[in-house]
Amino acid sequence: MIRTISTYQQTDTLRQLISRQKQQLDQATKELATGLKQDVFANSGGSASKSLQLRAAMSANDAYLVSNGRLASKLSVAADVLGEVQNAASEFLTLAAAGDIAAMNRDTLKLSARDAIDRIVAQLNAAYDGESLFAGTSTNKTPLSIGTDEAGQLTVTYLGDGKDMTARLDDTTELSYGIRANEPGIASLLTKLSHVVNADLDAMDHAGFNAFRDDLVAALGQSTIDITAIQAELGNAQARVSSKISAQEEMTKIFSNAILDIEGVDAEEAAVRLEGLSVQLQSTYEVTARMSQLSFLNFI
């Protein structure tokens, strides 16, 4: 018996072949163009779930980067403010400690104290992006207000709360960074300066004023040391945030690479595949055309 090949089947096979090759060609083209696998879930051996999680982690990382960047500038504003406070304190200290007492105009000392209070309060009342920096978590309140009590004495009142501000640096790290205007160093500085403003300096004799002045210089010296400690603490926080930022910038690259490892295609491999497939498809077309011309009908 002679075995034949069904004419219908012959063309059908060629059609199926062409359609399959075209699908593969389409996939290779897309993969080459996008650099990503056409179906990650089918072609990454079960690591697609990892890739989804990496993408989620990367977007969280990016959001932390932005919010940490904002935190870093907030802290740097706070550091500037503290620097200004420190300047005002030490300028007054220089004036108080310097020169001959006899030569010193006691009114000038009073005026300078008042000026220092104004400068310090104005600095500490600074807001960043509409939020008070030194009022604890009561960011909507101005932390310090200058007033007078019933006896006509100058007072500086703290209006914020006692809670520290916290920030989330990443999923697991929280940073408590609040510098409040009622921290001991700042509070004692303001109290001492108010004393100068409120004291009746003219009524003091030479020895009394000397003692007052020595006491003032010592107290202000201590405040300056305390504020320096606060600055150091703030500096630590700034360092933590900035090292977190560099780590997160690094993480973005690591995430991208890890995602690309799972989802990406090797461009050269895809190009070679595309080349091979187009040659193959071309030959299939040629064979199909030739076969269709080959018929016994042409010879009878």
């Binding site: 999680q53 993408r55 989620a56 959001a63 919010s67 935190l71 992006d129 939020e131 960011t139 989330r168």
Partner: peptide
């Protein structure tokens, strides 16, 4: 997963200024 990631992103941004 992407919607959840966007929600988390929005919350992280909010955590930088909770009253914003």
């Amino acid at each position: 997963v992407a919607s959840l990631a966007s929600l988390k992103e929005a919350l992280i941004t909010l955590s930088g200024g909770v009253s914003d």
